[in-house]
Amino acid sequence: MLVKQISVFIENKSGRLAEVTKTLGDNGIDIKALSVADTADFGVLRLIVNRPDDAERILRDAGFAVSRTAVIAIGVADVPGGLSVALGILEAGGVAIEYMYAFIGKMKDEALVILRVENPEKAIEVLGGKGIQVLAAETVYGL
């Protein structure tokens, strides 16, 4: 159920994001979801892609500082308050969220959200127990 997220260190300089996405595009890597966390001097680009192992190798070979993190992907009802239901379940279950971001696309009537939590196994368990759909990694890569 754990999804491989690729993180890339990016300096706050113009053209850097373009460089990363071009490197991936040239190698046929398709970006499924992304977010950028930034500070005054640098940012961390987080990516969900179709072929995470390849993407990691390609970016590293291109000279980027890359790391890999396990995240989970959930589908929530695409209606007002849909996300808060899932987050409420995690809170009640004592799972802290470090960060989260939404998918670019969606699946039927569900919005897809990527969650980075302290304890992903436990998150899967509490969400699953309350009927929230946790997506299989292969499903995410193939979206």
């Binding site: 997220q5 993180s7 260190f9 966390a37 961390v44 500082a65 890359v66 790391s67 993190t69 980075r116």
Partner: peptide, 15 residues
């Protein structure tokens, strides 16, 4: 220069 051993996904760790 960031090295693989220094880089992690967490902004806080980098800071």
């Amino acid at each position: 220069e960031m090295t693989p051993s220094m880089f992690s996904d967490e902004i806080k760790q980098i800071a």
